[in-house]
Design a protein around this nucleic acid. Structure first.
Lengths: 130, 130
DNA sequence: CTGCATCCTGCTAGATACTG
DNA sequence: CAGTATCTAGCAGGATGCAG
């Protein structure tokens, strides 16, 4: 892992620029299901059907799509066991595991600030209707 | 993810559960424009038109929408100066600034892993067409 | 079991025009 | 300058059926 000296090298890859390549990454990473699927794979290797059950609300189509994208990005590895019926396992690659940390940070933030945000929303809505 | 030691029996905040409230937060936070707008406000207070210019590619509509959502969440404060023409400034609240860190972590990750991911994609696409 | 193809729908976001 | 309102197109994503 490269250590990140935060503010230093921000100029080369400025995500505020429209064409900036990091935007593509941020888009994928910010995807609703990506976050949850990567999280679900954080603990251990999982089968397709396991993921379908664990990530509540995801459709088969979106799970497939999300996994394919992650595989293409080299963040998830896919292993097919040619049994009958077929068994397919997914696991995070090293890159995928490295993504786990920033995502956990986000999740921690969500949990920690949920109450605060909810209160703010309630107040805001109150002011509006008043 | 929620596997922070104390999280044993907290069904309420399991983001894998469909109804989990943290999902709403993750959804907003993971939003394409939210990340960029919060980032743009990280440095200092900015005016509407400044943001419109800085966050390249965002439409006026989406900027307004994103700012309203952030304001509602209590993450951004809005100040109107009743001059002519009107001047409106946006700044991060304390909560908003606290969000800055996990977002920066994500951005750092994107920058550091961009090359790796690109290579993986190229390889993947090669295998497909072959 | 896993996953692709197809069809169909609702919402999202862009463009445009108008206002305080 | 900083919005709101309306209209529309495109596409994300659900449902279903089929295949390896």
């Amino acid at each position: 892992m490269v250590t990140t000296s935060a503010a230093a090298g921000r100029l080369e890859l400025d995500p505020y620029q429209d064409g900036c390549p990091t935007r593509r990454i941020l888009d994928r990473v910010g995807d609703r299901w990506t976050v949850l699927v990567v999280g679900a794979l954080g603990e251990r290797t999982r089968r397709f059907s396991e993921l379908l059950r664990q990530v509540e609300g995801i459709s088969q189509k979106m799970l497939t799509q999300t996994l394919r994208a992650l595989e293409r990005d080299g963040l998830v590895a896919r292993t097919v066991y040619p049994e009958v019926p077929v068994k397919v396992e997914y696991r995070l690659t090293e890159g995928g595991r490295s993504l786990l940390e920033p995502l956990r940070a986000l999740e921690e933030w969500s949990i920690h600030h949920f109450g605060e945000v909810s209160r703010a929303q309630a107040e805001y809505d109150n002011r509006q209707s008043a």
